[in-house]
């Protein structure tokens, strides 16, 4: 299984449906021999990303949907998640690790995605997120 495969799903604003796609993506990674650590990170990032898209992006509006496109090869998984919300400015999200924010909710999802994924990028509007995980990357820290 060396050829990259491409997938596409459009789901309603329903976190249970989001989790089904999450399972589909990580099952593909496991088949292609990604490590349990990579799978853990991608699962966590997808959980945060899809909940953000459905809850904060689409505000649970059943009339809105989330588009998920991903490609999977033996060396990396590349995922694009787009919601139909108005977006947000990722630079305005407070740093949850600042001492004054440590006991406040919010901002941790994005921070976890950044830490576990090789690439996390929002479009200018903030309603489209690109996630990428390359296999067996050595941690910098």
């Amino acid at each position: 299984m060396s050829n990259p495969e491409e997938f596409s799903e459009r789901i309603p604003s329903d976190t249970a449906r989001g989790r089904e796609v999450q399972e589909q993506i990580v099952a593909g990674m496991e088949q292609r021999g990604f490590s349990p650590r990579d799978v853990f990170g991608v699962r966590l990032a997808l959980e945060e990303a899809l909940v953000n898209a459905i809850k904060h992006g689409n505000r649970m509006d059943p009339a809105k949907s989330v588009q998920i496109d991903w490609s999977l090869s033996d060396s990396e998984v590349h995922i694009v998640i787009e919601d139909e919300g108005g977006g947000f400015d990722v630079n305005e999200v407070p740093d949850p690790t600042d001492d004054e924010n440590l006991d406040k909710p919010g901002g941790r999802g994005i921070m976890l995605m950044r830490s576990f994924m090789s690439l996390v990028e929002y479009n200018d509007t903030g309603n489209r997120l690109t996630l990428e995980k390359r296999k067996d990357e050595v941690d910098e820290d």
Partner: peptide, 15 residues
Amino acid sequence: YLSSAALGKLITMDK
């Protein structure tokens, strides 16, 4: 597995 939403509850619990 746990998500940031679960962390939020733990923070509230701590408070």
